[in-house]
Design a protein around this nucleic acid. Structure first.
Lengths: 186, 186
DNA sequence: AAAAATCTACCAACTAAATGGTTGGCAACC
DNA sequence: GGTTGCCAACCATTTAGTTGGTAGATTTTT
């Protein structure tokens, strides 16, 4: 992966997470990176290509983070808390979730992107379900909780809190929701 | 309020909730309503005017719904459940929350819209806080719960679940999260 | 090792279509 | 007779995307 290409991906991600997919143009991105519009097309022929690369890179980063969390935190509740802190980073930077931004524009999105986002969320659901089931076994998570249903509940709460607190309550408010979420699974 | 104007608001709301604010154009709206582009400008001089009217109408509808819920449901937990069912309607129609769609594009939004969205969420937070405090008094909501913090938790969960289940699990999955939310406050 | 061919990253200049918005006018209605 | 609702015909700007090309690096051929 080229240096310019990486820079393009980074700046494009910031743009999408701040203004949405149809909210930024190749001209915006070119200005942000300090390159000409035509050069972006050299790396990403169409905007949909760029979008797909964005989701792929974002998903890969999250996948690595999820693996690290399982390795570094021994118990279920601690892992969910660490997962929640991933979203906190977005609030601190004032940026939403890339896939939430894309999901919002779902109806206008290229089919291929639509599918990539679904896969992103499904990967998180599968990870959470597993972590919750393990947490039930290790006793850090209450036994009455249904891992599959609760996995959805966790993502929903975190995505929604990121969406809202990014422009309302900031990191402190977000951490309050993090605490409420932690309570609810013990 | 004119008939055409109401039709414009309705179709524009559907467009924004499905594709985002910068994801639709006056041409799209004109086609949806069966009118010419220029005529939209007669009712809403600028796109920001239309956006502001959209939020105002949406907020007014919600305000009425919130009042009705308090009148029709006696206890705190029942009111929160009814509030959750408001969002379920969105999932069933395959449409996200208008203000969530706008919040996503926050960085690119006219300042005036930005402010209107914040007010929308703050009104909901205030209502929820009140309902939760009353629910604690009537015993339907656990006493250990902090109404202010939990109000944020509730909106976050519902907004996030709407965002996700609109394109993932559909109404059934959403209702699972509704159940988990209800459990968590008892 | 020199020369030739190929590839990579970039850009100036362009295009067609779409964007939000304006102007001037027409017809119906109080 | 002025207000209201609408539209055809504009307009400037922006959009994603194309074309044809240059300069430098890399690889291939001799």
């Amino acid at each position: 992966m080229r240096d310019t290409r990486a820079e393009l991906l980074m700046q494009a991600e910031t743009l999408v997470r701040g203004r949405g997919y149809s909210g930024f143009s190749y001209a915006d991105l070119a200005a942000a990176v300090g390159i000409r519009k035509a050069s972006i097309h050299h790396h990403f022929p169409t905007k949909a290509d760029l979008g797909a690369a964005l989701v792929a890179a974002y998903a890969a980063r999250y996948e690595a983070a999820l693996t690290a969390i399982r390795a570094e935190h021994p118990d279920g509740a601690g892992r969910i808390a660490a997962y929640g802190r991933l979203y906190l980073g977005g609030v601190e930077q004032g940026l939403g979730c890339l896939c939430a931004a894309l999901a919002t524009e779902g109806d206008a999105l290229p089919e291929r992107l639509h599918h990539d986002i679904v896969r992103f969320f499904e990967a998180h659901l599968a990870w959470l379900e597993r972590v919750l089931a393990e947490g039930r076994a290790d006793g850090s998570v209450r036994a009455s909780l249904d891992p599959a249903a609760y996995a959805r509940f966790v993502i929903a709460t975190l995505e929604g809190a990121l969406l809202m607190e990014r422009l309302l309550g900031g990191p402190e408010a977000f951490q309050g929701t993090l605490r409420a979420l932690d309570e609810s699974l013990r």
